[in-house]
Design a protein around this nucleic acid. Sequence first.
DNA 1: ATGAAAGCGCTAACAA
DNA 2: TTGTTAGCGCTTTCAT
Lengths: 329, 329
Amino acid sequence: MATIGDVAKLAGLSRTTVSRVINHHPYVSEEKKALVRQAMNELSYVPNSIAQNLRKQVTKTIAVLIPRISNPFFSVMVEVMENAAAENGYQLVVCQTMYSKERELVYLNLFKTKQFDGVILASIENDWNDIQDYTQYGPIVMCNEYDDRAEVPMIRLNQFEGGYIGAKHLLERGHNKIAHSRGNHLTNLTQDRKDGFLYALEESGLSSHDDWMFTGVSKIEDGRQLMRKIVQMNHSPTAIFTGSDEVAAGIIREAKVLNVKIPNDFAVVGFDDQPLARLMEPTLTTIYQPIKTISYQTMAAMFDMLKNPGKLERQTIDLSLHLIVREST
Amino acid sequence: MATIGDVAKLAGLSRTTVSRVINHHPYVSEEKKALVRQAMNELSYVPNSIAQNLRKQVTKTIAVLIPRISNPFFSVMVEVMENAAAENGYQLVVCQTMYSKERELVYLNLFKTKQFDGVILASIENDWNDIQDYTQYGPIVMCNEYDDRAEVPMIRLNQFEGGYIGAKHLLERGHNKIAHSRGNHLTNLTQDRKDGFLYALEESGLSSHDDWMFTGVSKIEDGRQLMRKIVQMNHSPTAIFTGSDEVAAGIIREAKVLNVKIPNDFAVVGFDDQPLARLMEPTLTTIYQPIKTISYQTMAAMFDMLKNPGKLERQTIDLSLHLIVREST
DNA sequence: ATGAAAGCGCTAACAA
DNA sequence: TTGTTAGCGCTTTCAT
């Protein structure tokens, strides 16, 4: 493997000059430039990026922490982010925490050892206190997830609004026995969504019914089980706000098996507007989240910090969610 | 940021000794080891991995080239690969070619500049002749995609078998007017799948019908359009092998709108066994692909090559596909 | 068991 | 416009 020294020798010039043409510096005569180019071709020389990185103290690599990539929400997010990274000459390392505190810290420690120039947090497993420290090693931007204590840019979706409009819609459809479900993790995000949901209920003079606040429900199969559970309840709700298209799809699918008519017997609201929302029968009423937009804006914030070190601002961008009414409500 | 020199100075030892304790070398007295550890803590020292990389000439990074991560097939693949990478102390860089020859080459050139220790090709846009060269820069392993000229490990699925069992199943159901669809790209993979399909037809004394060999069909919406097109044909097929669960789902969904009864009026076979196959009504008959298995085996082959440089063998692993019969046929 | 010295491949002051 | 020199932070001979 040829090095810059080999090229310099062959061209009869110094390494500096070769370096200058590699980096498109001015003040190199066309004549020498040609000489260098020729030598580079002859040796099929390519600069060693590890050496460049060491010298420049950068890696041109950004890490994105997510729970798992096979979740469609995150795969769409990563698709957008990787494209933005590539456009700016950066690489994107996918870091799946698999909902593990330990794995999250392992990745953050790689940041500490300078493996990445920046980190995007699209999920948080540890308490913010334990993450705070890592902000000293370079830019951290939060995408979707958030924490009030964080002094970093946070590009997020208005989850309170999401819960509110979902519940409001069901209320307007005449329901007053409305259930709620969420996954295992109670984060700022899911808490706010739930608060929005409850606020809408209160506005209508309703209060929540503990038996109808389901947790640990996040996959298609969980949705199916939940539907079975609900039909067996003595005092059962007539509608549900699921916080997940997968769960909603599972409910709709199992309802058919159980001969529960949707939306007449039971109404369902999902969350995300994933492709499957339009495939279900009945099609799924859901809350659209502008994932691509927050993903893109997150990258913009990241590049902004990367280009202007020091001016780490605590900017918060809140994007609106909106309801897509289909047949399940 | 503290360096190894700072630690050495504070501990009153040489950088060599510090390096030894970092790398868990033998022949360091417990006494000095403790001294070094203390100094490292005091300075909250972490080794700079870029410097380690330069010295050791590795990056501990593997790149995986895929068309796009939001395709569920590839997001499952990447999930498995990233977990395997993390387990072995490697990072995974996601490289989306977005079906572009140019982007594929951009990523391969990063390999050339030593950004990655190895590359996994889960898609190929360029002709193999143009990719061949890059094998000199380090291990390349192919996953799912393949090319007869490639002298690299190829972990793949038996696509011929996939096409064969799909068609065979429809034949056994009594169909003799069977359509076929695929996406835009005619790769070795899609060609083999089609060959398997045609072989089954021939075995039954049937020949293909050009009007029923659809191309450019790869998304849900494409499937819906295809269904509309088929009902308008004078001479229309009674079944289709789609090569894609998304397409099959689109067909099933649109069939309802058009009042085409599935499977009685029209039978549909998908490919992949994605979660949505069980959500459709009727549920989707499809070909299960052991994605997780090939993904894992691909990583095993990669680590094998990484650990034993030089012994680059042209091993080919072919995994079987199998049919999952549900309600759409 | 420990250290001195060389060097991985590159870039950037500084000097000329 | 070009070259000399130093050094990014680390590991590894080779001595001792």
